[in-house]
Lab assay of single mutants.
Amino acid sequence: LQLFIKTLTGKTFTVEMEPSDTIENLKAKIQDKEGIPPDQQRLIFAGKQLEDGRTLSDYNIQKESTLHLVL
């Protein structure tokens, strides 16, 4: 599923993930694309901070959802 990642600077980029992927996987993918170390990434969806060990489906993140990346 394609997700939109929006940064505080207003930049938006996309990543391609599976619902079974963990937040950790997502942070690694963001590191590949943007060079931001996972330990500096905080991801927010629907007002909640996402925890590394959980999956996208745990948070009911669907295709074309927008996640906010806070550094």
Rank of each mutant, 00 (worst) to 15 (best):
D32N: 04
P38H: 13
K63L: 12
P38V: 13
D32F: 13
R54G: 07
E18K: 08
Y59C: 03
L69Q: 02
D21N: 11
L69P: 00
I36M: 07
G35A: 06
L67C: 01
P38G: 08
Q31A: 09
T9P: 09
R42N: 11
L67V: 15
F13P: 00
S57V: 13
R54Y: 12
V70W: 09
G53S: 10
T22I: 06
Y59S: 07
T14N: 10
K33L: 09
S20T: 13
S57K: 11
E24Y: 10
T22G: 05
V70I: 15
N60P: 04
V70D: 10
K33F: 08
D21E: 05
G10H: 05
K29S: 05
Q2H: 15
Q49T: 12
P19M: 13
T12A: 14
I5H: 00
Q49V: 06
E24V: 05
I23Q: 01
K29V: 13
F45I: 06
N25E: 05
R54Q: 07
G47K: 05
E34T: 13
I61E: 03
I30K: 00
T7Q: 07
N60Y: 06
I5D: 00
G47E: 14
F13L: 14
G10Y: 05
A46K: 07
L69M: 12
R42G: 14
E18C: 04
S65W: 07
T9W: 08
E51K: 07
D32P: 02
K11D: 12
P37T: 09
L8E: 13
L56N: 01
L50C: 02
T22P: 05
D32T: 14
K29W: 13
F13S: 02
F13H: 04
I44L: 11
T14L: 11
F45A: 03
K29M: 09
D21K: 05
T7M: 11
D32E: 12
I36S: 14
S20M: 11
R42D: 11
D52P: 06
Y59Q: 04
Q62E: 14
E34H: 08
Q41I: 08
E16Q: 08
E64A: 08
P19R: 09
K6E: 10
E64Q: 10
I44D: 10
G53T: 07
T22M: 10
E16F: 09
G53E: 15
L1R: 02
R54I: 09
V15G: 00
S20V: 14
Q40V: 11
L67I: 08
T9I: 13
Q31M: 07
E34W: 05
D39S: 06
M17D: 01
T55N: 09
E16R: 12
G10E: 05
L3F: 10
E64D: 08
L67E: 02
T66V: 13
D32C: 04
T7Y: 07
E51C: 03
E18V: 10
V15A: 02
K27A: 01
K63H: 14
V70K: 15
E16T: 15
F4I: 15
F13E: 01
P19A: 11
P38Q: 06
I5Y: 01
T9S: 13
S20H: 12
D39V: 04
N25G: 08
E34P: 01
N60L: 03
S57E: 14
L43C: 01
A28F: 10
D39H: 10
L1G: 06
S20I: 13
V70N: 14
G10A: 05
E64S: 04
D52R: 04
E18T: 11
R54W: 12
T66L: 13
K27Q: 02
D39L: 13
L8Q: 06
K6P: 01
P37V: 13
P37Y: 14
T7L: 15
T55K: 14
I23R: 00
L26S: 00
F45Y: 11
L3D: 00
Y59V: 03
T12F: 08
T55E: 04
T12K: 04
L69Y: 02
K11M: 10
P38Y: 13
D52M: 08
K33G: 11
T66I: 10
T9N: 11
F45T: 02
D52S: 14
V15D: 00
K6D: 05
L3R: 00
Q62D: 13
D58T: 06
P38L: 11
K11I: 12
K29R: 15
L43E: 00
K29Q: 13
E64Y: 13
